[in-house]
């Protein structure tokens, strides 16, 4: 983290499953380069022996009784599906 690393926008967009246009790629790479440059100052902080904080609530694990609760009906669960048939969500063929 000594200097702002180059952000490989094609690689990251692929990982994020975002089909960016060439124009978006150029613009985001420049803008995020500025943001990353700013973020570089985190490297200055001495974090030796410091535990990470995932969230500030004093809760670390939660157990619940394994009891069935009322859930959504099939109709409610499928209400927002982009395409459906016979109580199933339709997607294009995955394997030929």
């Amino acid at each position: 983290m000594s200097s702002a690393p180059a952000l490989d926008i094609d690689h990251i967009a692929k990982l994020a499953r975002l089909a960016l246009t060439a124009e978006e790629k150029a613009r985001f790479a420049q803008q995020l380069g500025d943001v990353l440059h700013h973020i570089e100052q985190l490297a200055k902080v001495d974090v030796t022996g410091v535990e990470p904080t995932a969230h500030a609530s004093p809760i670390f694990n939660v157990w619940q009784a394994d009891v069935a609760q009322p859930g959504l009906t099939v109709a409610d669960a499928l209400r927002n599906a982009p395409a459906q048939r016979d109580n199933m969500i339709l997607v294009p063929k995955v394997v030929e």
Binding site: M1, L7, A13, L15, A16, L32, V35, A43, E51, T53
Partner: peptide, 24 residues
């Protein structure tokens, strides 16, 4: 994009883990 980058292989410790420590 930024979030995917800071979590991506090779950068997780430098960004995400470090930020969580600074958060402490």
């Amino acid at each position: 994009i930024l979030g995917t980058y800071v979590l991506s292989s090779g950068y997780y410790d430098a960004y995400y883990l470090r930020a969580q420590k600074v958060r402490t």
